[in-house]
Amino acid sequence: MSETSEFLERPDGERLAWRKVDGAGPAVVWLGGFKSDMAGTKAQAIAEWAQANGRAYVRFDYFGHGESSGDFRDGTITRWREDALAVLDALTEGPVVLVGSSMGGWVACLAAMAVPERVKAMVLIAPAPDFTEKLMKPEIPPEGLADLARDGVWLRPSEYGEPYPITAALLEDGARWSILEAQEVPIEAPVRILQGGEDPDVPWSHALQLAHAIKSPDVVFTLVKDGDHRLSRAEDLTRLISALEDVIL
Rank of each mutant, 00 (worst) to 15 (best):
R176T: 13
E93K: 10
G33T: 11
A146N: 04
P165M: 07
S2V: 12
A86T: 10
E172C: 00
W80C: 03
E133Q: 15
Q183D: 15
L8M: 10
W106V: 00
L194F: 00
E117I: 05
G66C: 05
G196R: 11
W18K: 06
L194D: 01
R150T: 15
A211Y: 04
Y160G: 02
A207Q: 06
E3L: 13
R10K: 13
P190D: 08
D173W: 01
R15W: 04
L85K: 02
P203I: 06
E172D: 08
L135W: 07
I125G: 05
L249I: 08
L148D: 01
D83Q: 07
D37N: 14
K42Y: 02
T92F: 04
A27C: 14
V153Y: 00
E67Q: 13
P142K: 14
A114C: 06
A39Y: 04
I46D: 01
W18A: 04
L98R: 06
G23D: 09
V115Y: 07
D12E: 13
G94I: 04
E6D: 15
G197S: 11
L231F: 09
P186L: 10
G152F: 01
F131A: 01
G174Q: 02
E9S: 13
H229F: 10
I248E: 07
A234T: 15
R118G: 10
I77H: 03
D173R: 11
G23P: 05
L85R: 07
S205F: 12
P190V: 09
L210T: 09
E181Q: 13
V185R: 14
K120E: 15
A39Q: 05
E188N: 11
G70C: 08
F63W: 13
L124A: 07
L244M: 11
A168H: 05
Q44T: 15
Y164H: 00
L240S: 10
A175L: 09
A169V: 06
T167W: 02
D130S: 06
E117K: 11
E3C: 12
P129Y: 11
H206Q: 13
G66S: 00
P129L: 02
E181R: 14
P129M: 07
S2H: 10
R233Y: 10
T41W: 02
A114N: 05
S36Y: 00
G227R: 11
R55P: 09
F7Y: 15
G227P: 10
S69W: 06
I248L: 15
D218K: 14
A126N: 12
V247K: 12
E93Q: 14
D71T: 01
L148F: 10
L170P: 02
